[in-house]
Simulated scan of single mutants.
Amino acid sequence: MGSATSEPRHLPAAVARSVKVLVVGAFGVGKTTLIDAVSEIPMLRTEESVTTASVGVDPALGSKSTTTVAMDFGRLTLGGRTALYLFGTPGQRRFWDLWSGLADGAVGALVVVDTRRLEDSFEVLDQLEEKTDLPVAVVINSFPDAPRHPEDDVRLALDLPPGTPVVTADLRVRQETVGVLVTLVEHALRRRSGRVAA
């Protein structure tokens, strides 16, 4: 659950930097959950009900009854001086053409993966590489029934460059999710300043 009720809706006057972050991943990996967990404003959702028209088109994910069709949007202020604007992409392949527009101006992309369906992330990473040149960090969403793998093994399985951050977090937990976003932003800023390889 987001923290909109306990945080101010207006941007604090002390904020000196705004940073746009793209949150991407396959269908049902937890992108909406991530943004909802950290957003200090009421999260913008563009969710629709999953219907029988998606049978054979989208993966069947048990109890998942809604899906993002345009984007999710939230805001998180870090340290009182940096505002992160979070743009979550739709997970279904047929909506991926929206990614280019959503990526415009972003400092980096956070790729959410589910180790129960790691193969679904291959196309996501290919699409991200094709549509953008953003720095990337990967977060393994620790679903309760998901197999646990060392982060280096996941990096290898996804064929990520050695400097790519890979972290594990329960994306329902605000503190863990904030840490993930800090990792991405720090990586993106280091890459931008030329201190790490792409």
Rank of each mutant, 00 (worst) to 15 (best):
W96Q: 10
V38A: 01
V178H: 08
H149A: 12
R17K: 15
V173M: 09
P59W: 06
G25R: 01
G2K: 11
V23D: 02
D152Y: 00
L181N: 01
V185D: 04
A157D: 04
F73L: 14
R148E: 15
A14R: 06
I140A: 11
R94W: 03
G2E: 10
D126S: 11
T168G: 13
T68V: 11
G101W: 01
L156Q: 14
A26P: 02
L118W: 05
A13K: 11
K20D: 09
V182T: 12
A37W: 01
S100K: 14
V111E: 05
A70I: 14
G101T: 09
V50I: 15
R192E: 13
T115E: 04
E130R: 14
T32I: 09
F73S: 10
G30S: 12
A198Y: 07
L44D: 02
T183K: 09
A60P: 02
P147F: 04
V124R: 01
V55E: 14
V166Y: 01
W99T: 08
A198D: 13
T115P: 03
P165F: 02
T77G: 02
D104R: 13
G30R: 12
L160Y: 01
G79N: 11
V55F: 08
T67I: 15
L61I: 10
L158E: 08
D120V: 08
V182E: 14
T82E: 09
G79Q: 10
D170G: 02
G25F: 08
R174L: 11
R172K: 15
S63G: 07
G79V: 10
R45C: 01
V21Y: 00
D159W: 05
P165Y: 00
P42H: 06
V24H: 05
S39R: 03
M71C: 12
V112Q: 07
A53V: 06
R148H: 11
S3F: 03
K31M: 08
